[in-house]
Amino acid sequence: MIGPTPSQTVGPYFTMKLSNNNVLIGPAVEGEPIRIEGRVFDGDGAFVEDALVEIWQADAAGEYAVSAGAGTAKFTGFGRAESDPTTGTYWFETIKPGRVPDPEGELQAPHVSVIVQARGMLRPVFTRLYFSDEMEANDADLILRMVPPERRSTLLASVARVEDRKVYQFDVRLQGDEETVFFDF
């Protein structure tokens, strides 16, 4: 084994390169279009104005686009969003992911893998977004059941409003009473 390259902060200037790539849907993408939006908060409850939020998710059939096979996948499952410097809001237009099997052969609840970085963060945090309107699946989810019950709500995106599609709100709290559950794996 050789040692990994250490992590460093993404800093305040990442949008020079890592800018919004947050519309994952197109005419050929199957599934229920949804919008995910939210803000990242610091330990004072102030929104983080320069956060980088990235998602990795399955398609509507619960499959990951691990290889494009000559770049033909219609849905990559990867998105990248920067928080708006004025409002702090990040957003994605995507589809609701299908259910992915767990190692025990059961189906996980629909979820999105979320990676958050910012100036002032020397390392990324890894979390998962679950959907508050999938409580039956959530209750049986292998990973969610590893989270103490009183902290599970930090992983639930709820329907903030309905436009032409459901808009799910998912805020991330880096520190404080309602700190979001972060994972190591």
């Binding site: 902060t9 610091d42 330990g43 004072d44 102030a46 983080v48 990795w56 399955a58 990951y64 992915v100 099997p101 767990d102 190692p103 996980q108 979820h111 893998s113 910012a118 100036r119 002032g120 963060m121 020397l122 945090v125 998962r128 292998l142 990973i143 590893m146 989270v147 880096l174 520190q175 404080g176 700190e179 559950v181 972060f182 994972f183 190591d184 794996f185």
Partner: peptide, 21 residues
């Protein structure tokens, strides 16, 4: 590195097993 003070988690990371995700 001052900006880390308010942007760092206090709670322990929760260890999970790896799924396909």
């Amino acid at each position: 590195y001052r900006s880390t003070i308010k942007r760092s988690p206090d709670m322990k990371m929760i260890e999970i097993i790896r799924t396909l995700t």
